[in-house]
């Protein structure tokens, strides 16, 4: 959605990183999904291949 549509909509958040943000937003009733994030195990070469293979 374009920026103005976004500003007019209810914020629906994908939280990637600090879990406390997701928890706090959730408690306030902001629709939020928390992504459990960790650095990729794959090395740079594999990351490069993945990018080329459309992942």
């Amino acid at each position: 959605m374009d920026v103005n549509e976004f500003l007019e909509s209810d914020v629906r958040v994908v939280n990637i990183g600090l879990e406390s943000f997701a928890r706090e937003l959730g408690e306030r009733g902001v629709p939020t999904v928390h992504v459990v994030w960790a650095p990729r195990a794959a090395n740079a070469r594999i990351r490069d291949l993945l990018a080329k293979l459309g992942s």
Binding site: M1, F6, S9, V11, R12, V13, V14, N15, I16, G17, L18, F21, L25, P31, T32, V33
Partner: peptide, 10 residues
């Protein structure tokens, strides 16, 4: 989360 519109990245 259907209709998500913002990624908060930390």
């Amino acid at each position: 989360l259907a209709g998500a519109n913002l990624a908060l990245i930390s």
